[in-house]
Design a binder for these strands. Structure first.
Lengths: 172, 172
DNA sequence: CGATTCATGTAACTTGTTACATGATTAG
DNA sequence: CTAATCATGTAACAAGTTACATGAATCG
């Protein structure tokens, strides 16, 4: 029973501390959305699969709000460690702005400029969003979350600089 | 009949010049793979859909090797232009290295270091590959392909610098 | 003449999104 | 009291990958 990339991501979330499906979705949206997204349609079925595989255990739903909290098992911890130390890592990018720019030269300078301006605006919006959550990540005790957030900030800064450079070139 | 993102990408390829499904796959692999991938399983059915929608026309298979070449129609050209000037553009990233780093802090310094080193190596390999195709793109008459290739080069250079910086921090 | 490239396609599968259904609790 | 948030799930759909099948042409 091979664990999918999403299964590993969810198990990773549980390796921090026990969580419900709702918690996982909230954390993913708040901290990892820019490089890893997940929907409820994946999370809830996947949690059941992890439990069936013995990598996590579900608590009985309890509390005023009956939530099912999943806790990682020793064999789940081993799976997370094995995954993290393996050197394979996928990197997939789907950037519609670059795709448009690829073709925009065939239209004209104005069109290419509009594409780059729109791309710049998208990166600026992403940057603003990440800056809003930075204080929250800066006080985290663990190294990872803050490091990846800084990656997000610096990447968007890079992309904005690149757009400015291209706009400059387009104006000759 | 809404055009999918993949449909738009393929129509964009046809806007440069008429192409077969095989041509589209080759071009996509050579020039756009790092920000937009497509498989035969998508390309061939999508070409038929584009033809059915009147956005492209299929030539009769001919030549020594019988290939079916698709040519964009006027209404296809309009669709490409409308798409390019629209400001919406998706940006999706799936970076398993960042995901690993996010969790690696809970394991230890050595594990985090190994993750960053592996991520660095992946970006270096991507950079080498892009450098191999740079001469090919540099002589293109259109602006787009060379611009996006430079984005690929500069992005990977940024990522390598970032990894080096993090490795430095991890060594305190 | 054998390996590689050209060339087209489909079927089965995996993955992921969206929309919907349901209902409790809490904040204003 | 009512809107927002907490909380879990599924069904239908859309998107994308992989593996397979087939065969001609070209290169060394």
């Amino acid at each position: 029973m091979e664990l999918s990339a999403t299964g590993r991501a969810i198990l990773g979330m549980l390796s921090i501390e026990p969580k419900s499906g709702y918690d996982i979705k909230t954390l993913a949206d708040k901290s990892a959305r820019f490089f890893w997204a997940a929907s409820y349609g994946q999370i809830y079925p996947e949690l059941k699969r992890l439990a069936a595989a013995g990598l996590a255990e579900a608590s009985e739903p309890k509390g005023e709000r009956k939530r099912t909290v999943y806790r990682i098992t020793p064999s789940g911890k081993k799976a997370v460690r094995d995954w993290i130390v393996a050197t394979e890592m996928t990197h997939e990018l789907r950037d519609e702005g670059l795709l448009k720019l690829f073709f925009a030269g065939a239209l004209g300078r104005d069109e290419a400029e509009a594409v780059v301006r729109a791309k710049r605006a998208a990166h600026q919006a992403a940057l603003d969003e990440l800056r809003d959550i930075e204080p929250f990540a800066a006080q985290a005790e663990r190294f990872g979350p803050h490091a990846v957030l800084r990656y997000g900030l610096e990447f968007n800064e890079f992309a904005i600089r690149w757009c400015d450079h291209i706009l400059n070139e387009l104006e000759n």
